[in-house]
Write a protein that binds this DNA or RNA. Structure first.
Lengths: 155, 155
DNA sequence: GTTTTAAATAATAATATTCTTATTTAAATT
DNA sequence: AATTTAAATAAGAATATTATTATTTAAAAC
């Protein structure tokens, strides 16, 4: 891998610091995956991230993208949203929040975190002996548009 | 499909009534998928359900299993738990609850539902205009056993 | 700056999951 | 009981996701 991508390397954000603090290595691939998510400012699939990394001429495999997204999700840096058409990923930004997904059109709406959640997590931790690393709450429903569009099927 | 599986058909439980009430058809495949989950008394993968249906000599495709599990999950009859190794499914029984999953060994522990969740769902409904059909909360962590087993890696 | 070592990667194989389209079927209507 | 119709299914193709293993690399120790 001669030649350099040095100019493209994401600055050491607090996110990277967080990663490093947990004892994980700071690989090119890992940095760039996070940078794609940061730049993108939008939710991306693993495949989309993979494509963008290739465009940056980074040597990367799809497996590496999936593996890192899994890790980043597990340690709470990234949030995964499960759609029927596949999963999408976003960086966890300032305010912790959850997602409401339309079962018809897959529209995603952010909703604020349940205020009682923190206490709930603490209780679960105490009761089970687990170290709780993260959580994922997804609500599923039908959005206004899709409800109105319905003419024939299960209202 | 001559010959009969009539003896095997699941009785019309409240779950089936619920399904029918929503306007969905009561197909052999759908009934038997639910019956496998009911009999199994344990969480099953789509593939395991498929295998058991074949053993019952039911004409069924894997796609049908996935499609029905998706529907049943969407309308709140079945709960899906996302593991790294794939998804598992269980019937929603009396008491609504959530799951805590070990990120190492995939042990699953049931935890009671967050008491504030109902109010939270109502708020989300009001604020967004969605019809909320169901939700999924999964906590991820490291169980006691796995934490103690750790010698080399990220504590 | 080498050496060492566990973690991370690439490549490819293997699974899991979803999509497409023609055919079948449950339920409603007659 | 026959007819009609939207919903559901089967089959197989297409994607998405994960596992395996040999090779590379970041970080630490020297």
């Amino acid at each position: 891998m001669a030649g350099g991508v040095e100019e493209n390397i994401m600055p050491e954000t607090k996110l990277l610091a967080h990663l490093k603090a947990k004892g994980y290595k700071l690989t090119q691939q890992r940095q760039q995956i996070m940078d794609v998510l940061l730049q993108g400012k939008t939710r991306l699939t693993a495949q989309e991230i993979f494509r963008q990394l290739k465009e940056r001429n980074l040597s990367v495999s799809l497996d590496t993208v999936y593996r890192n997204l899994r890790l980043l999700t597990a340690i709470g840096i990234v949030q995964q949203i499960s759609l029927q058409s596949g999963a999408v990923y976003e960086l966890v930004q300032e305010e912790h929040h959850h997602h409401l997904v339309c079962v018809d059109c897959e529209k995603i709406v952010c909703i604020s975190s349940c205020p009682a959640m923190q206490a709930y997590l603490k209780d679960a931790d105490d009761a089970t002996g687990f170290d709780i690393l993260g959580h994922n709450l997804e609500l599923y429903g039908r959005c206004d548009d899709c409800r109105n569009k319905k003419t024939n099927s299960h209202a």
